Simulated assay, not measured.
Amino acid sequence: MASSVPLKGIELVDCAKANAAQGPTVAADLCGYGQDVATFQQELRQACQQIGIEVTELSDLITEQQVVRQVGGIEIAPDTPSEL
């Protein structure tokens, strides 16, 4: 759900991280910046600096865990619960 007002601070970072894989246009819209991607990116950089995260582009917020979920991985588990 898109924010009705532009997010700031940690809320902006959280929203941007959650939507980073969809690209800057979608992330900007969902974080309340509509089509103003430039302002979104500027505010995101400032918010990241305030909490000590160095970000040069939106994709820097995508973690390895998010990549594994999207790409898929292998599951390592016993065949049955009794074989633990």
Rank of each mutant, 00 (worst) to 15 (best):
Q35L: 13
P81N: 07
V68E: 15
L44D: 00
A27P: 02
Q50Y: 11
T56P: 03
M1N: 10
D36F: 04
D29P: 06
G9P: 02
K17T: 13
Q42K: 13
D14E: 10
V68Y: 10
P81V: 09
A47T: 05
L7W: 01
Q46S: 14
A27F: 04
A47E: 02
A21I: 11
D36I: 04
I74A: 12
L12I: 02
T39A: 07
Q65A: 14
A38W: 05
E83G: 14
E57Y: 10
A16D: 01
S4M: 11
C48Y: 06
S59E: 11
Q70F: 08
A38G: 05
R69Q: 15
C48T: 03
Q70L: 12
A16V: 01
I10T: 12
S82D: 15
L58M: 02
D36T: 05
T56W: 09
G52I: 03
V5E: 14
I51H: 04
G73F: 12
S59Q: 09
Y33D: 00
Q66I: 05
A47Q: 01
T25V: 13
G72A: 04
V67Q: 15
L84M: 15
D14G: 08
A28Y: 00
A27Y: 03
L84I: 15
C48F: 05
A27M: 03
P81Y: 04
E64R: 12
Q50P: 06
E64S: 14
L30C: 10
P24W: 07
Q65K: 13
A28V: 00
Q41I: 06
I76A: 15
Q70P: 04
A38M: 08
V68K: 15
A38N: 08
K8Y: 08
G73V: 12
S3I: 03
A16N: 01
C15F: 06
G23A: 02
I74V: 14
A77Q: 11
A16Y: 01
A20P: 00
S4R: 11
R69E: 15
G72M: 02
I74G: 10
V26E: 06
T63R: 04
D60F: 06
S4W: 10
R69G: 13
A16L: 03
A2F: 07
K17Q: 14
Y33L: 03
T39G: 05
S4H: 10
Q42N: 11
A21C: 07
D60P: 02
V26Y: 06
A47W: 01
L12G: 02
S3W: 04
I74T: 13
A38E: 09
L61T: 02
A38D: 07
E11F: 10
G23H: 02
L84V: 15
L58G: 00
P24R: 08
Q49L: 13
G23Q: 03
I53P: 04
D29V: 08
T39I: 07
A77F: 08
P24E: 12
Y33I: 01
D36R: 04
